[in-house]
Design a protein around this nucleic acid. Structure first.
Length: 213
DNA sequence: CTCCCGATAT
DNA sequence: ATATCAGGAG
């Protein structure tokens, strides 16, 4: 029953809020554009690795214009340690160019517009929308949300868009932004992909996949 | 579906 | 050695 699943979801969210009271974005940024760059860099990469690169990066490239004018191979070297650096350097430069040409240097605050930027997909766009503008047009489904939503039995799907649709029915809208942050915190600390620590998980009794204590 | 990719934990 | 990390594009 969907009603029962919604209650269980609410219980899960409540427990995670108690467990991670300071849950939120762990990227370092001072502007919408810096957040956008950081989020592009964070694809398939730990936020820790991104945060090692961005302070120096934002010191070297101080404006959107600086990123738009960047030499690609130099930018690639500047971000090399995060991996997938060719795709990301291209995305950062082209997105900065597009931002200046089509949006007057202002990061758009709608999902439809922001995902038209090169290198910015639904996940990246949704992160910027939620974290900078406080807007939730959807729920961010990253690798942790994908894995843990399935383990918790909140969805049966593997496709991120379908998982998002299921979650949008289960999570109350006011929790859409915090939900992802809570799941990510939990995914990093307890429900780790390689070895879930079911023995120290506050969701043990609510999780159909848990190894019982 | 495949490719892109370095750092880190196991 | 290998799986995983706030994915996106062709």
């Amino acid at each position: 029953m969907i009603k029962d699943k919604k209650r269980r979801t609410a219980r899960i969210v409540a427990l995670l809020k108690k467990e991670y009271p300071d849950s939120g974005c762990s990227l370092k940024f001072k502007s919408a554009h810096q957040l956008l760059v950081s989020t592009i860099l964070s694809a398939q990469t730990t936020d820790e690795a991104v945060n090692k690169v961005t302070p120096g990066l934002f010191k070297k490239y101080k404006s959107i214009e600086d990123f738009a004018a960047a030499d690609i191979s130099e930018l690639e070297k500047d971000i090399a340690t995060v991996g997938l650096f060719r795709n990301k350097a291209k995305g950062i430069k082209l997105t900065s160019v597009e931002l200046l040409h089509r949006y007057g240097g202002v990061v758009p605050d709608s999902l439809d517009e922001i995902i038209t930027l090169p290198g910015v997909g639904r996940k990246t766009g949704s992160v910027v929308l939620g974290t900078w503008f406080g807007k939730a047009e959807g729920i961010v489904v990253d690798t942790h949300v994908k894995r843990i939503s399935r383990l918790l039995g909140l969805t049966e799907h593997t496709d991120a868009d379908k998982i998002e649709q299921d979650l949008m029915k289960l999570v109350v809208k006011t929790d859409w932004i915090i939900f992802t942050h809570l799941i990510i915190d939990h995914g990093r600390a307890v429900c780790i992909a390689r070895r879930p620590r079911c023995d120290s998980c506050v969701l043990n009794r609510l999780c159909p996949s848990a190894e019982r204590i």
